[in-house]
Amino acid sequence: MTNEAAAPAEAPAPSVGSRIGGDFWARYGVLLALLVMAAVFVLLSDRFLTQDNLVNILRQSAVTAIAAVGATMVLIAGGIDISQGAVMAFAGLAAVIIIQQMGGPDVLAIAVALAFAALFGLANGVLAETIRIPAFIATLGTALVIRGVAFVYTEGRSVGLAGESGELLKWLGRGFIGPLPVPVVLMIVLYLVAAWVMARTTWGLHTYAVGSAERAARIAGVRVSRHRIEVYAVAGLLSGLAGVVLAGRLASAAPALATGAEFDILTAVVLGGTSIYGGRGNVLRTLLGAVFLATMTNGLILLNVPSFYQTITVGVVLLVALSLDRLRSRGTR
């Protein structure tokens, strides 16, 4: 005897209306919100709709957006990584320190910084998947360790790139290719590649599968733990890239760099409609989420809203996005 009798043999398909409604808001909700908000800023400030300001918004969104690619993948795979801010700080510091204090060439410095970041991601994956610490706690732990090491090594001081040194690093953060800042170009390329990987490769497909239903994916022949570890490693690598770009833009790095960045990143991802319950999401829409956040911050600054209010605004936006995600997931889970 089983419980089968308790369930109707055939579940009714959801109505066409609800299907379109759910899809529509998940797909175009951020875009609409972004347009509405932009329209409001245009009306309230004549400095908003200028080429300089729009490029500025994209540049401001780039660092968050680059790290958010990894966060999107991790969330889709059913995990979470809140060590991203710490990894960004460590990678940025590592690059600057290798150039400035050890006299290493830029390429090597950047490579080493990225390798560290990927390694931290791998550690996150092993802690969450092999040792099976809940991902939130595991990555909280690594975040503390990583940032702590950065503080110890620098004794809490920031390190700057003096004069001519670190040209390549600075170019990554401040350079231009044509009219576009390098971080923006990097961001766009990265998003195109990530979107392709998620939609067109087995790796991307398996990322969705492990987040959608872990046990089902396993039985269907996907190596769930191993795959998630890979996803964490990729996320670490991308956090590192974001940190390097940030250090280049600032021409310096500090152990307190990017403190709390993981929450901006998470907000961008969730705004883009990626579910924190795994299995659903879209990389390109994360870009919209990141641009939304940058636009909001930019507009609030133009309107002279004090920065403490911006923190509150980001928090509210995150909670609204999470509530929508919860409501969307309720029907199917």
């Binding site: 497909l205 969705y208 959608s212 046990r215 089902a216 269907a220 299995g279 889970r333």
Partner: peptide
């Protein structure tokens, strides 16, 4: 292997039929 518990161990909810068939 095809598991008995369709909801928990077979289908990949939130994903298309195409992906559910082609997952592996």
């Amino acid at each position: 292997y095809l598991a008995e518990d369709r909801k928990a161990e077979s289908i990949l909810p939130g994903l298309s039929i195409r992906i559910n068939v082609g997952v592996r």
